[in-house]
Design a binder for these strands. Structure first.
Length: 274
DNA sequence: CTTGCCGGGAA
DNA sequence: TTCCCGGCAAG
């Protein structure tokens, strides 16, 4: 997990920062910098789903192998012309002051916040979920284009409608989660002592964030001050599932006698800790 | 589908 | 206590 996170991070943020477009200056927003380059001849979009168009080109059910010109244009044309996929999922917007970065996945957003704003490493490191307080999920209405047809016609020219970009007016602090651990990381007083972003403004990781570091007060989420809450016991976020092969994987199911006792009892492995 | 393991139960 | 498993979440 950590390795994957690091890899994808360095890939999408650090190495490929160049072609990406800061959406503050670009009329047609392009938040999908996950696939900023189009590898010539490759099938384009990553597993993320991509745009309906690009993914369709690999559809095996279509008897006609060559792409219609429009699709080709889409695949190899200017990235800026690309249309944002009308996502069925929500989008996630960073609530950090002057940032407002929008990503398509919550995990990506958490990474963004961790790295760019919190100055932490990409590793889960005892993930306390702090990042969750700094972004919010956008409710992107499924636009009217997403009728059944659009997914089936690869060359459909209707695919270039610029979607109204989610415009969050005031940056409201996100809704408070009902469940909080007691005195977690930075309670509001730490305002100024928040770890300053480690990235220099020229860092590609900074793309998307408008202003350089500003000593302005950040949207520190207001945590519920104390315990008076029901303190829901049942809702345990569960451990993130550590890496490392455990007895089961190492010795195989058919050598249970070689496992450590914990593994045999389906408890947390004691031999191969995380 | 598999893997790790929490919560709970039986001996 | 030791031993096991249902069932869930993550992959």
């Amino acid at each position: 997990m950590a390795a994957a996170a690091l890899t994808s991070l360095s890939t999408s943020l650090l190495l490929l920062g160049a072609p990406a477009v800061a959406f503050s200056t670009e009329p047609s927003l392009e938040p999908w910098r996950e696939a900023p380059v189009r590898p010539p001849g490759s099938s384009g979009s990553s597993g993320d789903g991509g745009w309906g168009l690009t993914s369709d080109q690999s559809s095996p059910s279509t008897p006609s192998p060559p792409l219609p010109p429009e699709a080709a244009h889409f695949l190899f044309g200017e990235p800026a012309l690309r249309k944002r996929k009308s996502s069925l999922q929500g989008l996630f917007q960073c609530l950090w002051k002057r940032c407002g970065k929008v990503l398509s996945s919550a995990s990506g957003m958490q990474r963004h916040i961790r790295l760019v704003h919190l100055g932490r490493q990409a590793e889960p490191e005892q993930s306390d979920g702090e990042e969750d307080f700094y972004y919010t999920e956008l409710d992107v209405g499924v636009d009217s284009l997403t009728d059944g047809l659009s997914g089936l016609t690869p060359g459909s020219p209707t695919a270039s409608v610029p979607p109204a970009f989610p415009h969050l007016e005031p940056l409201e602090p996100p809704a408070l989660p009902s469940l909080l651990r007691p005195p977690a990381l930075p309670p509001p007083p730490v305002l100024s002592s928040l770890p300053a972003p480690q990235v220099c403004p020229s860092d590609p990781a900074y793309q998307g964030c408008l202003a350089p570091i500003h000593p302005e007060p950040q949207p520190i989420p207001v945590r519920a001050c104390a315990p008076a809450l029901p303190a829901k016991p049942g809702a345990n976020p569960r451990k993130p599932r550590g890496d490392a092969k455990k007895c089961r994987k190492v010795y195989g199911v058919d050598h249970r006698d070689l496992w450590c006792t914990a593994c045999r009892w389906k408890k947390a492995c004691q031999r191969f800790l995380d």
